[in-house]
Design a protein around this nucleic acid. Sequence first.
RNA 1: GUUUCGGUAGCUCAGCUGGAUAGAGCAACGCCCUUCUAAGGCGUCGGCCGGGGGUUCGAAUCCCUCCCGGAAUGCCA
Length: 550
Amino acid sequence: MNLQNLIENIKQEFKNTLVNLGYFSEETIIVIDTPKGKENGDYSTNIAMKLARVAKKAPLIIAKEIVNQFNRNNLFIEKIEIANPGFINIFLDKSFLTNLITEINNQGIDYGNLNMGHGEHYNIEFVSVNPTGSLHIGHARGASAGDSISRIMKKAGYKVTKEYYVNDGGNQIHNLAISIDVRYQQLFGKKIEIPKDGYHGEEIIDAAKKIKNKYKDRFIKEDGYEFFKDYGVNSLLKTLKKDLSDYGVTFDVWFSEKTLYDNKLVEKTVTYLIENNYTYEKDGAIWLKTSDYNDEKDRVIIKSDGSYTYITPDIAYHMNKLERGYTKLIDILGGDHHGYINRLKAAIEMISGKGDLLEIEILQMVKVIQNGKEVKMSKRSGKAITLRDIIDEVGVDPIRYFFAMRSLNTHMDLDLDLALKQTNENPVYYAQYAHARINSIFVTAEKKGYNTKNLPTEFTTITSEKSFELIQILGNYPDTIRQAAIHRAPHKITNYVNNLASAFHSFYNDEQVITDDHLNTMERLSLLNATKIVLKDALNLVGVSAPNKM
RNA sequence: GUUUCGGUAGCUCAGCUGGAUAGAGCAACGCCCUUCUAAGGCGUCGGCCGGGGGUUCGAAUCCCUCCCGGAAUGCCA
């Protein structure tokens, strides 16, 4: 039995007790949580205080009644105490806690796996940056969040498909082709400038140079527009994929917007919306009545020049995702897209009646500070700090951990000078160091002839407070996964990692693991093996490695 | 104006389905390496939880209101 089951059983027994005492009603919710100081026990409940009003009795009296009725058989409870102003505090039997060590060692990386999914299949779309330039540091936050959330959902027992929507069908690709064309012609001494909607990034110049090297002046003589389009998308996409995979982020599906047109899906979507009266014509454009569904105003889906707006293929795209059978669609978007949520949901609701299946997680923007000044991230200007720079200069682990630490809706200030110079102060090293330290203990133990492959499964010498604190945190891992999954909150994982590393470091400083006492040494090695498993697994959830040496 | 996300220690941020003395890292200041990695441990300093009302036995957390900051408010994507 794991800790979560035990807590459930204790909860159930509280419920039975309340029923017996006649205090239980439909609204009664029993909450068991961990108190602040350890003098208040391992777990506590505030149920007596909650009941005070309905029962019209003092909380302490109710608490006493509950404790007297409570049947603690098979619940591994050492003692129960009542504390002011009415808390009921539970102290667990230590033998139960040490059994957790064996459970973790047996389950290995499967420890903490949950079964929350019940067959649901989530599609998680993130990054989806246009292939018109490099990824910058703002995109890195999105990549980190989407990837970490995906890993957490998988751990929690959901089936997950990670998807990247490639905008290779719209206006921006036209601008890309023209930008490459201009750079290409400049290489032949032509005096022309990038148009105002063009892209100024270095990577555009690189692409033009490569084309010149290979094809010489061929596209001076003939029109290169279509070629530049294909070449630009392909080469930029290749770089995007490489940058992302070096960042530890991979996708299951790279979905091309262009295929929506090729398969007439956009047309079909538009026809459906028009035929079912969800649209009207005004000023020569076709408008979608999204304001009927919670949007602040209606939106154009076909411009007066006959072309589509951004949302039109996007509606078709989301319909396509639904048709592929996902039970939930999660889009992770930047804070500047928050106005987009209602109109997209409205459109999905019109066309499928399933607007609820779409969940949009908004990620607030990263403000980058360098030399005390804000650096504006703009792809058009080409002056962004790229993900590639960060990976090369700082490394993947610090930056992924850094992003994972913050909740999605925090407006982050990222001071580049600090991030680049003071890398040793990044909390990621604190957690990684714990892992490396444990590994080092095992290396030493093996040198001294300990058989670390055959660790004890029963414990008689683990008695210290530090050990129990460590075990208790290990026991909380499944619940941490659950919380992180429910709230789509990777930062709950990094908080946990930090607590676990802290408990370990404290334990390490207090107790010599390898001593002359063989039994004691082996039992402690068993505890540390469990710690190592959980540390590594938790770090992996946020895409951070667990090195054996530092 | 409207929508939305923030305002918690000097700085960067947790805590927000109401609970016990409000936490962490960094910064500052003290201790602790003849012993498994000092990228560590232990301690000190530091808070009108933006302001004001309300609900409650109990509010950083819920409700109302005001103030401050970011973002959005395109027939751009």
